[in-house]
Design a binder for these strands. Structure first.
Lengths: 154, 154
DNA sequence: CCTAATTATCTTATCCACTAAGATAATATA
DNA sequence: TATATTATCTTAGTGGATAAGATAATTAGG
């Protein structure tokens, strides 16, 4: 016999993940980006300028794939290649935040408004609960991913 | 000037989405499945037996892609094709739940245990908050996806 | 210093999953 | 019964991934 509310939440969190993947892909598609390109563009915005190698490590993609990724994004003028001053083998990927925002914001607008509204419906205390949950859940998922990717292969 | 806790949560929910995508792919990869195959296998388990066409609609993939998907999963004996009795053009995809579970459960085990532990650390009232958040957020994301995929193309 | 080893990215060949369009086969309709 | 419709599959072509090796810059050793 199982704790029913727990089972519910587990299922919901799974649905939540599916839904966000689907939405993410839909938005990317609408912006003329593949799911991958959209995802890593998000990372670039989030973490800012980084080298091709760092992105390869972060994403788990091969350096060849990263070259292609940068090529595609650069062709769309969403990022720019720069050689690092301290080491000219390194290629810094500089996201053009303005341009990326201009491309994506309109597509996220509806979602963002509705999310804003939803969050506004919670008390500060409840928001704290949600925040705590998120933080821990993220930690768990990242640890899981990490350990899976480490043990052999990839 | 912006509400800081809100900004935090928005960012966290984005990270949460990224983390779940990454973990999902890592688990799939470990199980010898592509991200897509893993994802839709999850749907099949969740929603149970469905026709190829239904899966095509649900996923947004073309029927050709679905044929390939079923082929791959069938070759691994994770699903089985059956012709529907009422209409023998229809191909029912019957997931072999036992086999799928046997393949995936071990990979989710760690994650699941830790999640269980995390959830157990919340009060029933807090869990209710989280559940409410999930339900509404899922609704919002599905609506967004839907409207993006509807307006032109895909 | 100068050569060899290492490091960072790119190139190439190949593969796999996707789309688009049309083929095939079963069912519904007139 | 002939025709239209529906459900899936097939085929040709494309795009993004990997693996392995090439290129170019930096670091280390004698």
């Amino acid at each position: 016999m199982e704790n029913e509310p727990l089972r519910q939440i587990r299922k919901l969190s799974q649905y939540y993940a599916y839904s966000s993947i689907q939405m993410h892909e839909a938005i990317g598609h609408k912006a003329g980006l593949s799911g991958t390109d959209h995802k890593y563009l998000g990372w670039l915005i989030e973490k800012g300028e980084m080298t091709a190698g760092e992105l390869a490590n972060l994403t788990g993609l091969t350096t060849g794939a990263i070259t292609g990724l940068i090529d595609r994004l650069e062709k769309k003028k969403l990022v720019r290649r720069k050689f690092a001053e301290d080491d000219r083998r390194k290629v810094l990927i500089a996201p053009d935040t303005k341009k990326i925002m201009a491309l994506l914001q309109p597509l996220y607008k509806d979602f963002r408004n509705k999310s804003e509204q939803l969050l506004a419906s919670f008390s500060q205390k409840d928001l704290k609960v949600i925040e705590t949950y998120f933080r821990s859940a993220i930690e768990i998922m990242e640890a899981t991913t990490h350990s899976l990717n480490k043990k052999q292969s990839r």
